[in-house]
């Protein structure tokens, strides 16, 4: 059982500098050929300041900083049994190469649910990202499911 005393816990902020190559690597792994992510001039032509981060890019700081693994350990759930249930984004501003993001992650809720495949714990996290100008850029909501 996940540690319910962790509800409302905020974790120390984590930071991540956005690199152009990392934006490109992610869309290339996905197979998304939209040139705005690959070529600066195409991005500018389409109304961006530079090659923007793609819609699911924010997973990169989440995973590469290991913050998600830290949270999973802190709420005492078994990483090997965790599945991703939901992911939700609210886009406030574009994210560009050179931006330094700060993420603040909070445990919103921990619930137990029984279904046809047994019982599970549902852990809802929210992360707010700001940039180097302290402007909000993105809000993320993540639902983790721990199978029992």
């Amino acid at each position: 059982m996940a540690d319910k005393s962790m509800v409302n816990r905020e974790f120390p902020p984590f930071t991540w500098e956005v690199e152009r190559g990392k934006i490109r690597e992610l869309v290339q792994a996905i197979g998304d050929k939209n040139p705005i992510y690959l070529k600066r001039e195409e991005a500018v032509k389409a109304g961006y300041k530079d090659t923007p981060a793609s819609p699911t890019f924010i997973t990169v700081p989440m995973m590469w900083t290991n913050i998600l693994i830290d949270v999973i350990k802190a709420v005492k759930i078994n990483y090997a049994k965790v599945l991703h249930g939901e992911e939700s984004y609210e886009y406030i501003q574009e994210i560009y190469p050179g931006d330094v993001l700060t993420g603040k992650i909070k445990v919103i809720s921990i619930d137990e649910k029984s279904g046809k495949s047994g019982s599970m714990d549902l852990i809802r996290l929210e992360t707010l990202y700001t940039n180097q100008r302290n402007e909000q850029v993105l809000k993320a909501s993540t639902l983790l499911v721990e199978r029992k």
Binding site: I36, P55, G85, E87, S88, Y89, Y91, S141
Partner: peptide, 16 residues
Amino acid sequence: TNWVPKIYLRKFTVRF
């Protein structure tokens, strides 16, 4: 984003 330019996207949610 092949359909609506990414710059116009405000919210995006999925359930796996």
